[in-house]
Write a protein that binds this DNA or RNA. Structure first.
Length: 283
DNA sequence: CATTTCACCTGGTGGC
DNA sequence: TGCCACCAGGTGAAAT
């Protein structure tokens, strides 16, 4: 489900609800797939720790954790984390803050019981998501491989894409260049920049690249303001849907009229993914 | 190294 | 109602 705006929305919501809370018990399903760190090691690492804060890096949710001895309260967010719990939602992952009485959804893979009585749950039907525990006393903290799309300036952005021979859409989806852009926002940004998804990256002009950077920034910011896109079943930490799907210009609008020129939106496959564009507005 | 393809999963939808 | 093909917000391993 989740690209940068959805992950940002979830991270903010989870942060507001669990910051300062302590993990008293961690339960994991018996499926092996979602666990980058083996489930027993995750449980042992998490139990007793205080959640200092939750934030987004690329498409990852990073929970900063204090030592078992730390107290809760408002000072926690300023302490340096001693460990991290890293959540990647894959295609269908959800991170929900619930009460213990809330029905446990099918495909629930993790339940963290918190001192306040709340529960932090990870639900993921397709199991493409990943959960990882990092002890910062033993290793490095999480670092996204690519640049933040909302922070990259003109020169950095141009440098990232220089000399690439792939389709620009494939480059946008490459998390090693930019982290956080996925299928929806790649298509939407390319439409707003007037660039066809199959254009070779190294043949874009500087002006086109700068239009793309600004379009991407604008569409991501707008989507964050609207709580992300709920294409089928995406919900935030409270189970609330986003509204950016109402603003989509091309994504999943195959055959429908372009909102700018009226041409039928086309669907093609680029980089192995469904790709939507307007043949008139995008060159 | 850069680039492309495909496997990994479950569930929903639409055609017959 | 059933069966089947196809599609879905992502990524990393394998092949080219």
């Amino acid at each position: 489900m989740p690209e940068l705006p959805e992950v940002e929305t979830i991270a903010r919501g989870v942060n507001a609800r669990v910051r300062g809370d302590r993990i008293v018990d961690a339960w994991f399903s018996s499926h092996r797939e979602p666990f980058k760190t083996p489930a027993p090691a995750q449980a042992a690492g998490l139990e007793g720790r205080v959640i200092l804060g939750v934030h987004r890096r690329g498409k990852h949710i990073v929970c900063g954790l204090g030592g078992s001895g730390d107290g809760g309260g408002r000072e926690t967010s300023r302490q340096a984390p001693e460990a991290q719990w890293i959540v990647h939602l894959g295609m269908t992952g959800r991170l929900l803050v619930t009460t213990p009485e809330t029905d446990v959804a099918p495909h629930t893979h993790a339940r963290l019981r918190l001192e306040s009585g709340k529960e932090l749950r990870f639900v993921d039907p397709r199991r493409f998501g990943r959960l990882e525990f990092r002890d910062l006393e033993e290793g490095a903290g999480f670092a996204a491989p690519g640049a933040e799309p909302l922070k990259a300036g003109k020169l950095e952005f141009a440098e990232l894409f220089r000399g690439r021979r792939t389709a620009i859409k494939a480059a946008l989806l490459n998390q090693g260049l930019l982290s956080g852009v996925g299928n929806i926002y790649a298509d939407e940004a390319l439409f707003r920049a007037g660039i066809r998804p199959r254009r070779r990256t190294d043949r874009l002009t500087r002006a086109e690249l700068e239009r793309l950077r600004l379009a991407l920034r604008e569409v991501l910011r707008h989507a964050i303001r609207l709580g992300g896109s709920s294409v089928s079943d995406y919900v935030d930490a409270e189970g609330v849907r986003g509204f950016f799907q109402l603003e989509h210009r091309v994504y999943q609008r195959t055959g429908e009229p372009c909102r700018v020129c009226g041409s039928a939106i086309r669907r093609v496959i680029v980089a192995g993914r469904s790709t939507h564009y307007c043949p008139q507005c995008q060159r």
